[in-house]
Design a protein around this nucleic acid. Structure first.
Lengths: 229, 229
DNA sequence: CAGGCAAAAATTGTATACAATCCGGATTCG
DNA sequence: CGAATCCGGATTGTATACAATTTTTGCCTG
C-alpha cells in the first residue's frame, strides 16, 4: 500500500502535506494518535522535524497536542462544528462574488477539471478522496478571488470541516455533492457575482443541514461504559 | 526599565506573550530582527523553546522567518495591508451585531474600563500602549460574541493591523480614536445590533482611510542607492 | 480474583552538540 | 582603485542525548 511511504529525509512541509492529506481523506480519523517516533521512521527524519510538522498542524486546527501525552487528530466539539460553518457562511459567499469578477477562462477549466476528478473519485467509491477534492474546490475559488489572507483562513476552515464531517456526517454512504459545484462554476463563468454569492450561501447551508449536530453522548471511550446496559 | 526582563525559565507562551506585546506596542518595529541567542538570554531558556515561540509568532503573521537568516518582525506589503482591513470589514460588523445580542452588564463595564485605559495611555503619550489596548477592545467584542473560531482569526488580523499601522499610518502624532469606541459600547449596551454593526463598519473604514496605502518606493535600505542622483 | 501499588517501559519535553549557511572583512588580482 | 574571492566568525538548522512524565506491566495483598 503506497500510503505514507517516503524513502528518506523529507522536509517539514512534505510531512505536513502528507499528514494533512491523510486527515482530509479520512484515512486518519479524529482521535487518532500520531506518535513522534512512528512518524520519524515513516519519513526518515529526526524528531526535531516531526515536532515542527505536528506543531504546524496544531495551528491549523487539525491536531490537538496534549502536554506530555502526544498529538491527536482533533475532535471538534458541536460548538466548534457550528462555528466552522458559521464562519464559512460569513466568508465564502463574498469570496465567491469576488471570484466571479476575476475568474478567467483558465480558472474555469481548472474548476471543471476539479469537479470531474471529484465525480470520478465518487464513482470509484473513494469518498475520502472526493471529500478532499471538494475542499480543494472551495479553496481554488478563494485563490481566484486573490485574497490571500482570507484564503489562509478558509484553508483552516476547510481542514476543520473535514474533521466535522468525519464526526457528524449523517449517512456514511451517500456523499451528496449534487451539482452545487457545477452551478457555481456556471455563475463564475458568466461573471455573475450575485448568483455566485447566493449559490455559495445555499451550498454551505446545504452541507450544514446534512450534519447531525444534535447534542449527543460523548463517544464512549471507555470499554466498560460501552458494555454496561 | 522593566521591558523584557524575566529572571529565568519562561514558558513558550510567556515568551510569545511578551514578544507579541512588544510588537503590538511598536517597541519592536517591522523589520526588526530577533536573534535566537539574544531571546534565549533574555528569557533564560534554550533555543528549543525560543524557536517554538518564534514559530508560533510566524503562524500569527507577526514574524517572518527566512530560512538560514532568522526571524524578523513582518513588514506587510500594501496588498496585505489592504487585505487585512478588507477581512476585518467582512468579519467584524457581524461580530459586533452578535456581541450586541449577547453583551451583559459585566461586559459593558469591562469595555468601558478598556476605553478609559486607552484614553489614559494617550494622555500619557504612550501611543503604542493605546494602540495595543485598542486592538484588545476589538478582541473583547469578538469574545463577547462567543465565536471562538472567528475570534482566533480576528486575533491574527488585529496583530497584523498593528504592523500595518506601524508602516502605513499617516501622521505619527495624532492617533485619533475619536469616540468610535464609545459609540460602539453605547450600541452594545442598548442591545442595538443594527447600529453596532453599522458603527463597526464605519469605524473600520475610518481607520482604513487614515492609512497611506498609495504605492511607494521600497524604503531604500542601501546607502549607495540612497546617494546616487 | 479484584484492586492497588510499584517498578519498568514507552513517550514526550528540553538542552546541548554538531552541521550547514550566511555575513563581513581582508586579500588578491585585473 | 575597484571588484571579485576567500576565509573566519556568527547565526541558524538538524540530530542526538538526557530529563520529566505518562502508560503499561507485573506483583503483592486483602
Amino acid at each position: 500500500m503506497p500510503l505514507l511511504t517516503e524513502p528518506k529525509t523529507a522536509t517539514v512541509e512534505e510531512i505536513v502535506g502528507q499528514l494533512t492529506e491523510a486527515v482530509h481523506e479520512h484515512r486518519l480519523q479524529p482521535g487518532a494518535k500520531l506518535r513522534e517516533d512512528e512518524v520519524c521512521e515513516i519519513f526518515g527524519v529526526s524528531r526535531t522535524i516531526v515536532r515542527q510538522a505536528l506543531r504546524s498542524m496544531e495551528f491549523e486546527g487539525l491536531l490537538t497536542i496534549e502536554k506530555n501525552r502526544g498529538a491527536f487528530v482533533s475532535k471538534p466539539t458541536l460548538k466548534e462544528a457550528r462555528e466552522v460553518f458559521q464562519a464559512r457562511a460569513l466568508i465564502e459567499p463574498s469570496t465567491a462574488r469576488a471570484a466571479a469578477d476575476r475568474a478567467n477562462a483558465e480558472d474555469i477549466v481548472l474548476l471543471e477539471h476539479h469537479i470531474e476528478q471529484e465525480h470520478a473519485a465518487l464513482d470509484r467509491g473513494e469518498a475520502g478522496l472526493a471529500l478532499k477534492l471538494s475542499g480543494d474546490f472551495h479553496l481554488e475559488i478563494a485563490r481566484m478571488a486573490d485574497q490571500q489572507t482570507i484564503e489562509q483562513f478558509l484553508r483552516q476552515l476547510v481542514s476543520r470541516s473535514s474533521l466535522v464531517i468525519a464526526l457528524y456526517w449523517r449517512r456514511r454512504n451517500a456523499l451528496c455533492e449534487s451539482n452545487a459545484h457545477h452551478a457555481l462554476v456556471d455563475a463564475l463563468r458568466k461573471g455573475d457575482g450575485d448568483n455566485a454569492e447566493e449559490l455559495m450561501k445555499g451550498h454551505l447551508l446545504d452541507i450544514f443541514s446534512q450534519l447531525d449536530l444534535r447534542e449527543r453522548q460523548e463517544a464512549t471511550t471507555s470499554l466498560k461504559d460501552a458494555l454496561r446496559r
